[in-house]
Computed example of a mutant assay.
Amino acid sequence: MKPTLSALFGLCLAALAAPAPAQASPNQAAPSQVDLAAVGQGFAGPRTQVAVLGSTHLSGLPKDYDLKALEPLLERLAAFKPDLIAIKAVSGEGCDHLSRYHELFDGEQAYLDRGDLLGLYRFLNAPQTQQAAIAADFGGNLRERSSERYGRQYVAWWEARNLRMAANLREAFGNRPGIRVLDIVGSSHKPYLDAYLRQMHDLEVLDVQALLAPGTR
């Protein structure tokens, strides 16, 4: 169907009404790359708030473990009042990789032994804990010296996996701008998802440590 003359005229008027792009002055250096952050300024409505919670695999707890220890954690997550809750599903390939490269935290078992699951989640989501785990796992694999560079292949797989997770999450709430989202993932996914989601124009990635802080409900 060919556009009508009135439709074309309307498009021309809309283009003329749009603000002209800023022009660099003769003495001002042209930008070396596109500033995506500037594009996201001044959008309509509130930001979509996303909280990414790094989790351990609770399915590994003993069958007689007292799950009442989860209540302080669940109370804080409920206080966030998420409109959408997303979780990670692990594929067969993912299970294989995780079984080979599962990160071990020295302090995790101590929290479990004393029934302090809220403390465990604060520990798992602490930047220093995640930095140490990533440096040991992915940093170590980047330095792996086999001729096939298996370590770098693993890191590439991991980054691609997290990119897919970020894309799936973005698509899940793309038609609901301004809502609150809680995304529960394995703890080693969290820093990657935080980094990728911060590149989205109208999102605010929340500090999960603040949600889990003492005295919050």
Rank of each mutant, 00 (worst) to 15 (best):
E204L: 10
V50N: 00
K2W: 08
V205F: 09
M165F: 05
G45S: 01
G139M: 13
E75H: 10
Q23C: 12
L73K: 10
P72I: 11
L118K: 03
P26E: 06
E93N: 13
K190G: 05
G45N: 04
L124S: 05
G92R: 13
Y65Q: 12
Q209D: 09
F43L: 15
G92Y: 14
K190R: 13
S188I: 10
L8I: 00
A7L: 11
R217F: 08
R47P: 04
Q128R: 07
K88A: 10
N168P: 02
L206I: 05
G115K: 08
N125I: 00
F43H: 03
Q130F: 09
H189C: 05
Q109S: 05
L163N: 11
R217P: 00
L16F: 14
H97A: 14
V185A: 09
P19R: 07
H102L: 15
V181L: 08
A24G: 06
R100M: 09
S187K: 11
Y111R: 14
R176W: 13
Q209W: 08
Q41E: 13
H97Y: 13
A86D: 03
S187F: 14
A110H: 04
H97I: 08
V185W: 13
P19C: 10
S99R: 15
D194A: 11
A133T: 08
W157H: 14
F43I: 08
S99G: 15
D202M: 04
A136K: 11
L163R: 15
A22C: 12
A89D: 07
Y154N: 14
Q23F: 12
A51Q: 02
R145D: 07
T129A: 09
Q209G: 00
E108C: 07
Y192A: 09
A166D: 01
Q209I: 02
P214S: 09
C12S: 12
A86F: 10
Y196K: 11
L212E: 00
G151W: 14
A14S: 10
P19N: 03
I184W: 06
G94K: 11
G178F: 11
A110E: 08
A69V: 07
F123T: 05
W157C: 15
P191G: 06
S6W: 06
F105L: 12
G119E: 00
D183Q: 06
N162A: 04
L70E: 01
K190W: 08
L98R: 14
G10W: 14
E75I: 04
N125C: 11
G42W: 09
A79W: 10
A132F: 12
G151N: 08
V185N: 04
H57D: 05
L203G: 01
V34I: 06
I184P: 02
A166Q: 03
L98P: 04
L211H: 04
Q49G: 01
L117F: 00
V185K: 10
G94E: 03
